[in-house]
């Protein structure tokens, strides 16, 4: 990073021309606008959900009944659904993503690594709704007829794998989310792994380590906080992802237990219910769980960015 002063400060107080002042002022307004929008987003969600918080309090989070007829709203099933789907996604995507990052940064020759990284980053650009479309018509039936039936046959005695599978459900949502967060985990992990100094690799090689040992005993530990940050950033994306999940998670109102249960995440619940809820406590309660989602994603994002930026400066002792 450069330590040079920004151009605006070069001239200091001598820059008194009116045009300069106006220009500088307007850029400041726009820069400030970014911070302001964040404030506005938070404020709108807080204000719009306030009546629901006053009325229901923590029941919004701890109760399991979401009933517009009786006008009581407890969002626990959706909160659990959000965490459950994100956990499945993370469980699938982290090992694959980190291994891929290791492959790209440690094993693959440049002429393989560069196009492969490019391709994986392209996956991140595919619109959520297109992935959802593929999820409904291709992935879900495929999972139902192959992986799901096998899981039910072998692990069906566990409550987490109790059938039947309809294809759509938590498991499919988890797989879709895993696909969507893979590029995040891969590209950030790859960056932090690549920024590990070569002297660390040489030290391990010099002791008679294999390439794999160098990767997991020297490079990965050095970059561990960044890799954790990459996973957390992926988790943040998984929590907030809406369309693709909405399209493949089915529509369940109870706390999910089995991965084949249909469920809702906070985001998908908002997506499918918001327009039907015409004002009143239901809308406010939907905004309230949106606020919970905002808080969760913000915390995760901040934590992840701190970890990643620290990792690029060196390992945590």
């Amino acid at each position: 990073m450069t330590t040079l002063a920004p151009i605006g400060r070069l001239r200091g107080r001598t820059a008194t021309r009116r045009a300069d002042v106006v220009f500088r002022g307007s850029t400041r307004v726009f820069g400030g606008a970014v911070i302001a929008t964040l404030g506005v987003v938070a404020a709108v969600l807080v204000v719009s959900s306030a009546p629901a918080w006053t009325r229901f309090g923590v029941d919004l989070i701890t109760q399991t009944t979401w009933d517009p007829v009786r006008d009581v709203y407890g969002a626990l099933p959706f909160i659990v659904g959000t965490l459950y789907a994100a956990a499945i996604a993370l469980l699938i995507a982290t090992p694959i993503g980190v291994l891929t990052a290791i492959f790209l940064s440690e094993f693959a020759p440049r002429r393989v690594a560069i196009p492969l990284t490019f391709t994986i980053e392209l996956l991140a650009a595919i619109p959520s709704v297109v992935i959802g479309l593929w999820g409904i018509f291709v992935l879900s039936p495929f999972l139902r007829d192959t992986v799901d039936s096998w899981l039910i046959a072998t692990l069906g005695w566990l409550p987490f794998f109790r059938g039947p599978s309809f294809g759509v459900g938590l498991g499919a949502a988890g797989v879709i989310l895993a696909i969507m967060i893979l590029p995040t985990i891969v590209s950030i992990s790859r960056e932090v792994l690549s920024s590990v100094p070569n002297s660390q690799r040489e030290a391990m090689f010099g002791l008679g380590a294999t390439r794999w040992e160098v990767a997991v005993k020297a490079v990965l530990p050095y970059a561990r906080s960044g890799v954790v940050g990459a996973a957390i950033l992926g988790l943040g994306r998984a929590l907030g992802e809406t369309m693709a999940v909405t399209m493949v998670i089915g529509n369940g109102q109870d706390i999910p237990v089995s991965i084949f249960d249909q469920a809702q995440t906070i985001a998908s619940k908002i997506a499918v219910t918001f327009n039907e809820a015409s004002g009143g406590f239901q809308t406010q309660s939907l905004v309230a769980i949106g606020l919970i989602l905002l808080v969760m994603t913000l915390l995760l994002n901040v934590a992840a960015r701190l970890l990643v930026s620290r990792a690029q400066r060196g390992p945590i002792r």
């Binding site: 002297s199 040489e202 030290a203 010099g206 002791l207 530990p221 050095y222």
Partner: peptide
């Protein structure tokens, strides 16, 4: 890999493993 166990190396800059 085997050879390097019997031929050790010390590098220009000290490079201990920081997480160890």
């Amino acid at each position: 890999v085997d050879l390097r166990r019997l031929v050790g190396m010390v590098f220009q800059r000290p490079n201990p493993f920081p997480t160890m």
